[in-house]
Design a protein around this nucleic acid. Structure first.
Lengths: 164, 164
DNA sequence: TATTGTTATACTCTATAACTATA
DNA sequence: TATAGTTATAGAGTATAACAATA
């Protein structure tokens, strides 16, 4: 039997539950929207979105995998699916023959464009409809800090994360 | 091509990204902790936790499914797994022979107790380590409002609003 | 007829380990 | 040897539809 650590305060519990409730409902709805509007899973959307953000529309497999927090084999699978749908292409890197460069296609960008408006609407109606501009500022400040810290100091506490 | 709706402000985008990043890293770590410490999936944990919260330690299948936002067949599957591990029992309701009442066992409560400390530690180190008490108050206020609104106006908002 | 739940089934996703090839 | 990626595989989870039993 493990020692009980300092428990969370009731405020912290509230905050934690609210966060999980909001994010899980939000994610649920986003997943449905992505599937309905573009036949994309959440992960596939994020892969495409990352590629779309890149100035050249391309990334190495490993960099993509790191960004989406994925196993490489998992990313290979998803890249295959996207490739078969013609939304990305894959080719060995000229610089390093071991690497595979994934590039978003015009069709891929088109799917992103199809999917974006609905995505925005879901996020707005689920998250921002109830929030003031000040609330949004507060969220950015607070969650931004938490995110920054998580990014900087990975989950050593409980998880045996992959080395970065 | 769909009409572009009012885009999200850059602040809103920041807030959205911070929220998804924090919640996804948090959830990832929580899932690992639950699996390592108790052999529980996220869903299984929530089913057990809901039962544990109930004064009598029992719930109808449908009520559980609603609470966890699940398909009934999905819950049947999970209840089966938990049943086989001896963490819950299932029996037809005396009141309504159609219903199945799921009850948490002592073994189930023991697993919850085993898993809780690590869970708390993950949440603390991932979410609250970087936050002040005031931050937590703000989160409760803001996300609590968002959660309340989502709860009041169910998924229909995003799912029904297809096409335009 | 409507509701509760299970079953049958088919599919998506994910991770681990073994493997190839480059560096 | 170490790194990048794929493949093989196996398991978990999910949803849909058909079904049985009860209300």
């Amino acid at each position: 039997m493990t020692d009980a650590p300092t428990p969370l305060s009731s405020k912290q519990l509230e905050a934690y539950f609210a966060l999980t409730e909001v994010s899980s409902l939000l994610r649920h709805s986003v997943e449905k929207q992505l599937r309905d509007d573009g036949g994309l899973s959440y992960v596939q959307f994020h892969v495409l979105a990352r590629l779309g953000d890149d100035p050249d529309g391309r990334q190495r497999m490993t960099d993509l995998a790191d960004g989406v927090v994925y196993s490489r084999s998992g990313l290979t699978y998803q890249a295959q699916v996207l490739d078969e749908r013609g939304l990305v292409t894959r080719a060995p890197s000229p610089d390093d023959e071991r690497s595979t460069i994934v590039t978003i296609t015009d069709a891929g960008r088109a799917v992103l464009a199809t999917v974006f408006p609905g995505h925005v609407e879901v996020v707005r109606s689920h998250l921002f409809a109830a929030l003031s501009d000040d609330d949004v500022d507060d969220l950015v400040r607070i969650l931004g800090r938490a995110a920054g810290r998580l990014r900087a100091a990975p989950p050593r506490s409980a998880a045996g994360r992959r080395r970065v």
